[in-house]
Amino acid sequence: MMNLAPSDEQQGIAAASADFLTGQLPLTRLRELAAAADGDAVDDATWRRCADLGWLALSLSEEAGGLGLGLAEEVMLFQELGRHLAPGPFRSTVLGARIAARGGDTSLATAIGEGGRRVGMRLGELVIDTRPGDLLLELDEKGGRLYDVQAVEPVEGIDPGTRFGRATTAAQVAQLDDSLLMARARVLVGAELIGITEAVRDMSAEYARTRVQFGKPIGAFQAVKHRCADMAVAAYMTRAQLFQAALLVEAASGDADFHAACAYLLAVQGAKKSTADNIQNHGGIGYTWEHDAHLYLKRAVLLEHVLETSRATHRAVLAPARHEF
């Protein structure tokens, strides 16, 4: 029987990550970073502190400078990164470190894990969170590759906490042929999306308790409380699927790709609807720039497209002739 409940150690990772992000990268800080058009999405000092906490090397082997943990522990971290809308190339850097380590370049993996080299990500014709001198991750169903970045032309994007651009790359520096690398990426992005769903669920529930109309809290009205309930259900059912997918991907199970794709699709659907409903629950103020609700919606839209087309993910769901549960 598979135990999907997080261990005390895993819950400790989530709690410590939440404490750090609340103190060091609150949404007010995200807005400050976003306002600096010529700056990075995350400052070097904060990035280094995240690396010192081991966030970039949780699943790297100790020989590569990592902590030797697994995908389940990374899921706990990435849920908090999503919940706090943390800026910075966390997902691509973690995947890039894995490509370097599994590809045999231990020194490069160590440099990435220690925060010395950041890894941006290609997104169609654009790149995200990429600077000149960084590495660039290209990911597909067959595996992943890392390239040196020569130049980046900034492009305006939808998510204020993410930097977009067009990049000129140089030589390929690492490659990993692993069909489960995409499944691993889907699990990590799915974890971010669950964090977003849970954040807007809590935001809506709190507002529904305190906002009064017609002499009673708006949470007493069916239209509002049903939307809040739908958010809670979306987070609950996606969490179970995601934890199972993380364990199966880590074990290289034959149906890991199917379960990772299912978790990712559930997470996308839950986050998109929940972030939109959260704006609706907040009424007129939910549509303003000053309110944080739109930041969650924009990150959810980005994460829907950050890996590949939804058609490719649906192909992974439909591929197996038979499923074992």
Rank of each mutant, 00 (worst) to 15 (best):
G70I: 00
T46F: 03
T28S: 15
L30Y: 02
A246S: 15
R311N: 11
D148A: 15
V224Y: 12
A240D: 13
S274H: 07
I285W: 08
T168D: 11
C50T: 06
L77E: 02
L95G: 07
V155E: 12
F214T: 02
L297Y: 07
S274P: 04
G286V: 01
D40G: 15
H294G: 13
A51L: 07
T168M: 07
A256N: 04
P320S: 09
M2I: 14
V249G: 08
H294N: 12
E9L: 10
Q172L: 10
V119G: 04
N281A: 11
G283C: 02
A232F: 01
G124C: 10
L188A: 09
N3P: 01
V149A: 12
G113Y: 05
L265H: 08
A251T: 01
L95I: 15
H84E: 01
G12W: 01
A14C: 04
R299Y: 07
R29G: 01
E62Q: 14
E192D: 09
Y207T: 11
Q24E: 14
G23H: 13
L67M: 13
T238P: 00
Q222L: 13
A245D: 01
L58W: 06
L21I: 04
A97D: 03
M2R: 12
W55D: 05
A101D: 10
G88Y: 03
L67S: 12
S61V: 00
F221L: 12
H282L: 15
H226P: 00
A35K: 13
R299N: 04
Q150D: 14
L53E: 13
L123C: 11
I218L: 12
I218P: 00
I128E: 02
T275K: 08
A220N: 11
T28R: 14
N3M: 11
Q24T: 09
